[in-house]
Computed example of a mutant assay.
Amino acid sequence: MKRSITPITPFGWKIKQKLAEKQLDQSTFCDTYHIPPSRLSNLIHGTRKAKKYRKQISELLGIEE
């Protein structure tokens, strides 16, 4: 079974850039701030709105929504 690759959204690239700047991987970031890894993935790939976590992640990383 082949998995399709979902492209990364512009907001997702901002998240990845900020995590890289802070030298944090996605797993550590999620563990530290009690964010479900699936929600972070949803935001990076735009597969769900995840509004609650979008606001929290934006504030934690200093990203404009």
Rank of each mutant, 00 (worst) to 15 (best):
Q23M: 14
N42E: 14
T32P: 06
K14F: 06
T32K: 09
Q56L: 09
Q23G: 12
S38P: 01
K22N: 09
D25T: 07
I44V: 12
G62K: 05
S4F: 08
T32C: 07
P36W: 14
E65A: 04
H34A: 15
T47W: 05
S41A: 03
W13A: 04
A20S: 09
L61G: 01
G46R: 15
W13R: 11
C30H: 00
F11G: 09
K49E: 15
K51S: 15
K55S: 11
L43K: 10
A20N: 07
I15Y: 04
I5H: 04
T47P: 01
H45N: 09
A50V: 10
D31S: 12
F29Q: 01
L60E: 01
D31Q: 07
E59A: 00
P36D: 06
F29D: 00
M1N: 06
S38L: 12
T9E: 08
K14Y: 07
I57Q: 00
P37L: 03
R3N: 10
T9C: 05
D25H: 07
S38I: 11
K52N: 08
R54K: 11
S41H: 12
L24H: 08
Y33F: 13
E59T: 03
G46N: 14
K52M: 07
L19W: 04
I57S: 00
S4D: 12
P7W: 05
C30S: 00
K49C: 09
R3I: 09
T9M: 09
N42D: 14
D25M: 05
Y53S: 02
S41M: 04
R48H: 03
S58Y: 11
T28G: 05
E21Q: 11
I44L: 13
K49G: 13
R48W: 02
Q56W: 08
K14A: 14
S4L: 13
K18L: 08
L61D: 00
I15W: 04
W13V: 13
Q17E: 08
S4T: 13
E64P: 06
K52R: 08
E59G: 00
T6M: 06
L19P: 02
L43W: 14
L24I: 12
D25C: 11
Y33S: 07
E59Q: 01
K55E: 15
I35M: 03
T47F: 06
K55F: 10
P37S: 02
S27D: 04
L19H: 03
N42P: 05
K49N: 10
K22Y: 12
E64N: 12
K14C: 12
P36K: 08
G62H: 05
K14M: 14
L19D: 04
C30T: 01
E65G: 02
I15P: 03
Q17P: 00
G46F: 10
E64H: 13
K2M: 02
Q26A: 01
P36I: 06
A20M: 15
I63K: 02
F11Y: 15
H34Q: 11
T32E: 08
E65F: 06
K55L: 11
W13D: 03
K51T: 15
K14P: 02
